[in-house]
Amino acid sequence: MKKSNYIYIYPNDFTSLITLLGELAKSKILPLNIQDKNYIPGLFDKVIELDLSPLNTPAIISHIDKNILNTLFYLYLSNHEYKELIMYYFFLYSLKFKDKVFFHRDINIVDKALKIVKYVQNENHKLKGFTRFKELKRHILYAEITCENNIIFLLSNHFKKRLKNEFWIIKDVKRNILSIYDKKDFYLVDANNCNLKEIILSEEEQEIEDLWKSFYKTIGIKERQNDRCRLNFMPKKYWKYILEVSDEI
């Protein structure tokens, strides 16, 4: 392995990144960093973008074990500053240890990678519960969410199964991405390209929300009040879009 002083740039998608990782591993390069196209280089940064088009992406991907590819994907969705580099090192260790890599908590970078994966999965699981839809005119369901990691794809997969026969839209407010579902599949689009200014709630929406809020207030047992426990399970950072607690902030 030889160390490189270059920052490698990849087009902003998962398969290109995997192709790049495969190529770097093949040429035995340890890059200084790997960054997506939006990266703004510093004054002394040396950046390089490989031409990935002649490489056979499907072949590279089909060589990677399914569990390892999944792990790489979760890492890719995380908000970690050096996620690409962590992906690369995890990938290298997976070449060495194959599927036994998951047991190697003694290696710091493997341990770190697995913890990040857990964090992404946990947040995804939390949002499966915390997402709140509002009904708009014409029975469209609309939800706004906020999350640390880029989990809107995972979340959409969940709701695609659960709310199969509904039209729904989920907005990741922080990243300004919309997921739009048309009863067949969902599409991730940049919110700037969509005109969602005219969000008009359906007539019964307010009534249902009030019902839910009064249910929420009633179901807690006063004699057992435990704010710390509630905060542990439902951190404040999500409260803004959870309607039953949003007015408690």
């Binding site: 499966k128 199969k164 026969n165 179901i219 047992i221 006063k222 399970f233």
Partner: peptide
Amino acid sequence: NIKSKGLGNTFFSGICHSFAADGRCISLLK
């Protein structure tokens, strides 16, 4: 699993949707 008609499915490990002021999970309309 969801059927062609209808609403909803279940999730094997369960999902908590909210937490009441007593810190207990709310997942069902009880």
